[in-house]
Design a protein around this nucleic acid. Structure first.
Lengths: 239, 239
DNA sequence: TCTATATACGAACGATGTTCGTGTCAAGCT
DNA sequence: AGCTTGACACGAACATCGTTCGTATATAGA
């Protein structure tokens, strides 16, 4: 079975018959699971843009060409990684009384997974909607919202909005994190410096920015994340 | 003045004295404005990932090295492009009675600019918060929300959420658009095909996805975008 | 006139994703 | 047991990317 066929299978409903009866080498020196694991390890340690076919191959003690026996593309590798991420999410049994906390919990899990592998949310944004594990997550979130009494159309669109926001939030944070570890000035991540720059702006054209510089730079931890999720979920409850 | 200094100046409050009294070549063969224009033209025609230093240089009838007299980085080029995009946005005079329509209007403008230059929202997500034109947009949105009676902290965080969502929405759309024009199967963009795949899923594990396949694939044009903006803005109004 | 400086650009460097050709080895068929 | 087939492995190379170096040129101030 080609990597190309393996990939197509991941976007098709599972077919138990086709899974068996395939010749395999008795001892595969490199397994797809191994590729995924070391790739995730690389990302966790050095960020997504450190994930290079060459570096990944090097971590597996081989050359870049060897990877293409297990993976059709780099896009395919991204897909495998996101699939693994999605597979590790635990989806709660829908509880109509607790749907808000449940949907928030799932989003928080996704957020933490994205942040654990900085920059990988970029790959998530490019993910095809037919990936099986991603659909499992979608199904789980849909179940929670429907159990909470959200209208189906609202639920479907809200899931999309939530996933999009979480990915963008994590992507932005990962970029900022990377900036702070490698950079040579210009990029400001320090809050005090940011306040100083706001204060130095011309008062005639930036009155509100100057007056509310504190609020604009506020938000420790995931305050902004929590705020937006509350906005979306509460808005959903009130329709 | 180096490109490096020009870039730093864009993140500093404007200083009229420093702008004048600089030696310039009488006829600059390549101007920064020209670079930005042809870069945007390239993106509009072929998408963001067609924007290569070499292709941009080629479009200007020169070699790649010549660009580095006007631009310090590719990241710097991104910054210039986003700056131009932001500069073209028209920010309305805040009207307390119409703040919802106004903030929505600004978001729609941003969306249309992002979609006009497919993929450029990726650069927007990496933008430093101190870029002058970006701060102008922030100030304008802040003015609208404050005039509408939104609490300063809510306003600050809501602007962040809105900008993040708009960028993610456009990025996802641009990726899908690109897929549909270059691709060799696997990637499904056709709604009918998507419905067919949903229907073929195992009913035991995907009950809600199957039942509500219509809602999951619904949304012509910018229905999803409008839905999420309504959710966020209405939620903001009700706090 | 002289000098400093912004601009221009050919050539090259290192790194990237990917392909080609070739080789190896286990599993199925006859 | 021998042969074929298909999956796996990998060295070498290709095209392309962002970027730097060295150098040439022309202009604005001294």
């Amino acid at each position: 079975m080609n990597p190309r066929e393996r990939r197509a299978a991941r976007h098709q409903p599972p077919n138990p018959e086709a899974d068996a009866d395939r010749r395999r080498r008795r001892t595969a020196l490199i397994t797809p699971a191994q590729v995924i694991d070391t790739a995730l390890g690389l990302i966790a340690a050095e960020g997504y843009e450190a994930l290079t076919m060459r570096r990944l191959a090097g971590a597996l003690d081989t050359g870049p060409a060897s990877l293409y026996a297990h993976v059709v593309d780099k896009a395919d590798l991204d897909e495998l990684l996101i699939g693994r991420l999605c597979a590790e999410l635990v989806l709660p049994e829908p509880d109509p009384a607790a749907w808000r906390e449940q949907i928030r919990g799932v989003c928080t899990q996704i957020r933490d997974q994205y942040l654990k592998y900085p920059g990988i949310s970029r790959a998530a944004l490019a993910m095809a909607p037919t990936e099986l594990e991603a659909m499992r997550v979608n199904e789980g979130m849909l179940a929670i919202l429907l159990a909470g009494g959200v209208a189906p159309q609202d639920a479907a669109w809200a899931i999309d909005a939530l996933l999009l926001y979480v990915a963008a939030y994590c992507l932005e944070r990962s970029i900022a994190r990377q900036r702070s570890t490698q950079d040579d000035a210009v990029w400001v991540v320090d809050r005090a410096e940011l306040l100083r720059r706001f204060a130095a702006l011309p008062a005639a054209t930036f009155p509100h920015t100057i007056r509310h510089a504190a609020e604009l730079t506020a938000g420790d931890g995931h305050d902004r994340f929590d705020f937006t999720l509350t906005l979306l979920i509460d808005g959903l409850a009130r329709r």
